[in-house]
Simulated scan of single mutants.
Amino acid sequence: MKAAFIERTGPPEVIRYGELPVPAVKDHQVLVRVKAVSVNPIDTYLRAGAVPMPLPMPYIPGCDLAGVVEAVGPQVRRFRPGDRVWGSNQGLLGRQGTFAEFAAVDECWLYPAPADVEDEALAAAALVGITAHLGLFRNAQLRAGETLFINGGSGGVGSMVLQMAKIAGATVIATAGSEAKAKICRDLGADYVIEYQKQDVVQAVRQFAPNGVQIWWETQRDPDFDRAISCLAQRGRMVVMAGREARPPFPVGPFYVKDCSLHGFVMFNATPEEQEACAKDISRWLAEGRLQPRIDRVLPLAEAAKAHQLQEDNTLRKTGVLAGKIVLRCP
């Protein structure tokens, strides 16, 4: 099978595109003929060797996938050959990833694909959608009528948080780095958009939400806790999901006197049952057209190294080259 893979960690150029054996399926595994995958920051960290996880070599990166069941192991009960499926949580904790024509995936990490939703959309919504759902509903316990601030509403996770919060009946304030990205946020349903290069974020938030926001969702790797906590309402909740090496100052006093709480998480620590609950909502909202994954561009799988470079430039170097997900089409 054709696959994008590495034989050592390093920069994007270590990614090779060539032939690898089709993986064999074990008892509870499903062999998926992969149609589309998407690129996530965690993929680039693993490829670079920046995250200490076991990597079977040659290692195939990639968490997300959408495709068609090719074969099933003897203990598989939920899927049959020919079923369309989607999923995430691959390429992690010693598992091989998805950047290949075929992937052997444990049944518990796969979900039925809605009939009228394209593979590219399913792949683009997978990790970022599950991440947004976990943070909003399991951790922050968002309720209808609350106000949520999302720092970066046009990106992969940010756009999912924005849309899910609106589906749940929240008011959403989003930031954007350009007029084009501000328009994306408005088109996705944001009630108020702050162009942070032109406006003072704290002043703008206080103007729109004088009593503070109930939830502050932080997408940046190095959060400004002083700014965030000053904008939180009494008993406000802050969600962080990036910045593995970040060590920013933390204003303990303002935080505790407001009865605030801080929620940090990574989606791959969630159980299969927790992630499946998210996937059911995501599939339904995609089928209903209420959830629209932001896809910045679609590239062939053979350009996986280029995709990793773009993702790395956007995440680490803050170049702003992406407004959504990179999706790779498999041959």
Rank of each mutant, 00 (worst) to 15 (best):
Y192N: 10
V239M: 07
A24K: 15
M267T: 14
A50D: 10
I42C: 02
Q220E: 15
P54H: 06
L328C: 06
A246T: 11
H308T: 11
Q75C: 10
R138P: 11
M238T: 02
R294T: 07
R284V: 14
A323V: 03
P21K: 04
R235W: 09
T175A: 10
V72D: 00
P74H: 01
E195H: 14
N89A: 11
P61A: 02
L291K: 03
L310Y: 09
T171Y: 07
A144K: 13
V22W: 07
H133I: 06
A270I: 01
V327K: 00
L134C: 13
V30A: 10
L46H: 03
Y256W: 12
R47M: 01
D224I: 01
A103M: 07
L162E: 02
T147C: 04
L136Q: 01
G320A: 11
A323F: 06
V32P: 01
Y59K: 10
A132P: 04
A132C: 08
Q207S: 15
A304S: 12
G212W: 02
R8K: 12
Y256N: 08
N211H: 15
I15N: 03
I229N: 01
K166N: 00
I173P: 00
G236S: 06
L136A: 07
Y256M: 13
R290V: 07
Q309H: 09
E273K: 12
V257K: 13
A121V: 03
A115Y: 07
F5Y: 10
S261C: 06
V202R: 15
